[in-house]
């Protein structure tokens, strides 16, 4: 029972403090799940993100379900998922009540401009950490750069990248293992 409560609290925190959704969640996940509670490793988190890219649904929700399931089975997955969506539901309902005048307030706009910059800085630090732990060989660098170009510059869906990696692993997997 305590584990379930802990799961809910951890993912409630993540849901409440993640601005921008999706990958912006990574710094928070790393801290709450990997560093503080040891529920998953950094590698597992990336695996979940990879699966999240090619399965339906919101990545934050997918990751919550995965981690929750790993910790406490089906109930754990359900509780973690509810935890991650609960803050949004409360906050957005409140905002929806006053939305008309909310985004017109100048200092609110200014605060959000500053928050977006902070989110950039947080993502930068996470990305650097990710590259250090997961991009070690020449072909890793090539894969990372190709993935970046395909999505950031060619504007293709990340689904193609993930599926292409799966196909490549079937073709070249044995060679890489030997090397």
């Amino acid at each position: 029972m305590k584990v379930l409560f802990d799961l809910f609290r951890a993912f409630f925190t993540i849901g409440a403090l993640t601005f921008g959704g999706g990958y912006a969640m990574l710094p928070m996940l790393e801290r709450e799940i990997v560093t503080k509670r040891n529920w998953a490793t950094s590698e597992e988190l990336l695996n979940y993100f990879a699966i999240g890219q090619c399965t339906p649904g919101i990545i934050a929700v997918n990751t919550a379900t995965f981690v929750g399931y790993k910790v406490k089975g089906v109930i754990g997955g359900t509780v973690a998922t509810l935890g991650v969506v609960a803050p949004s539901m409360v906050i957005i309902t409140l905002i929806a009540m006053v939305l008309e005048n909310f985004m017109d307030i100048v200092w609110v706009q200014n605060a959000f401009a500053g928050i977006r910059v902070a989110v950039c800085a947080l993502i930068t630090v996470s990305v650097v950490k990710l590259f250090k732990s997961n991009v070690k060989q020449h072909w890793h660098i090539a894969l990372a750069i190709i993935a970046f170009v395909v999505v950031a510059l060619l504007k293709l869906s990340p689904v193609y990248v993930v599926v292409a990696c799966a196909v490549l692993s079937f073709i070249f997997g044995k060679k890489v293992q030997k090397a």
């Binding site: 990336l46 990372a144 950031a152």
Partner: peptide, 15 residues
């Protein structure tokens, strides 16, 4: 194997 190919690519996607 599949994940060892996906992880560097996902790092690129997040970048």
């Amino acid at each position: 194997n599949m994940f060892s190919f996906m992880r560097p690519a996902v790092a690129g996607l997040i970048a």
